Amino acid sequence: MRKNRNLIVLNIIVILGALVMVFPFLWAFITSISPGAGLSSTPQLIPDNPSLSAYVQLFDRLPFGKIVLNSLGLAVLTTGFQLITSSLAAYVFSRMPFRGRNVVFAVYLATMMLPMQVLVVPLFVEMKTLGLIDSYLGVLLPSIASAFGVFLLRQAMNSVPTELDQAATLDGAGHFRIFGLIVLPLVRPALATLTVFSFLNSWNSFLWPLIILRTPEMKTLPVALAGLQGQFTTQWDVVMAGSVISILPMLALYIFTQKYIIQGVAGTGLK
């Protein structure tokens, strides 16, 4: 009886927490279909005169399709590069011992402590020297490697038995075959977790694209949405329409990789 009562209380807490988490997204969608809605208005679950006019205005004001493609392309490329660089570095730190390996790994992880705001000026000077201002490569280049990704995948690769490597070596396999045919398939949950995290960070990136990109048609989604906010008045239904569109790719990605994310976080010991 007591166990059932505790289970009921736990379910109620989980449901209330889920409602608290979902409400901002629900409010954003309701605001986007409520013409003239503002932040000070009381949210209504059923709008009086629902309309998609805010979405029409959004695409009329901005080349929104191009902006979404900009963010999507950068996010896909960033995720792809981080998967490649992080998995290769993680394999080296996990499977190839060398003098000072732990020190190098610790120094590499220490870069996670540096906030982006500290790196903006030297990175901008570097991109200017390379002639990459107002270019997609200038946005992409600083994010092709991820210290967090190396840490995540190294933890996952450490859980793969080294006996598999030894057996493959006896069969004549080298490091690249062991890496591609044995280790990577066994750390797919961690790879899926890194995919979601990398895509999310790139998709929501604001500061660096704001500094590097100057041409309006090259803007990313967060920068374009910030430009919709006026100095004195703001059409919040239009802003929320853009926010709803920006949520959809991440929601779809998470739904398809949810199982692997849970396995990856549990397997790597992250809390």
Rank of each mutant, 00 (worst) to 15 (best):
E126I: 14
A90G: 07
G100H: 07
F124Q: 09
S87R: 10
L119K: 10
L132K: 03
L83K: 00
V68L: 13
I67S: 06
V125N: 11
F81C: 15
M112E: 01
A110W: 01
G65T: 11
T78P: 01
A54L: 09
T111W: 05
L119S: 14
M113T: 08
F93G: 04
I67M: 02
Q57K: 15
Q82H: 04
E126C: 11
F59C: 00
P122C: 13
A75L: 05
A75G: 06
M96G: 02
L77R: 01
G131A: 09
R99S: 12
L74T: 02
R99I: 14
F81S: 13
A54C: 11
G65M: 06
P50F: 12
P97R: 13
M112C: 06
K128T: 14
V103N: 03
L62W: 09
L130A: 14
L88D: 04
A89P: 00
L130V: 06
L52S: 10
L88G: 06
R61V: 04
G65H: 08
V92P: 00
T111V: 11
P115M: 04
S94D: 05
D60V: 03
L123A: 07
I133F: 08
P122D: 10
A54V: 11
L88P: 02
L123K: 08
A110P: 00
I133K: 05
V56L: 13
V118S: 03
A110V: 03
N70S: 05
V92L: 10
V103K: 01
I67Y: 03
D60E: 12
P50W: 11
S51I: 08
L109W: 06
Q117P: 01
V76F: 14
G100F: 12
I67C: 02
R95D: 00
G65Q: 04
Q57M: 09
T78R: 13
V118W: 01
Y108I: 08
V125P: 00
L58E: 03
T78H: 11
V120I: 15
P97Y: 14
M112T: 04
Q82L: 09
F64C: 02
N70T: 09
P50K: 03
L114C: 02
I84H: 01
L123P: 00
A110E: 01
Y91D: 05
M96E: 04
Q117T: 12
T78W: 10
T129R: 15
P50E: 05
P115K: 07
S71I: 01
I84A: 11
V107R: 01
Y55C: 09
I84Q: 02
L114K: 03
L132S: 02
F124L: 15
L52Y: 12
V92G: 13
Q57Y: 12
V76G: 09
P63K: 09
L52F: 15
A54K: 02
Q57A: 11
V104F: 15
L114M: 14
V120K: 06
K66V: 14
S94T: 03
G100S: 10
I84V: 15
P63I: 04
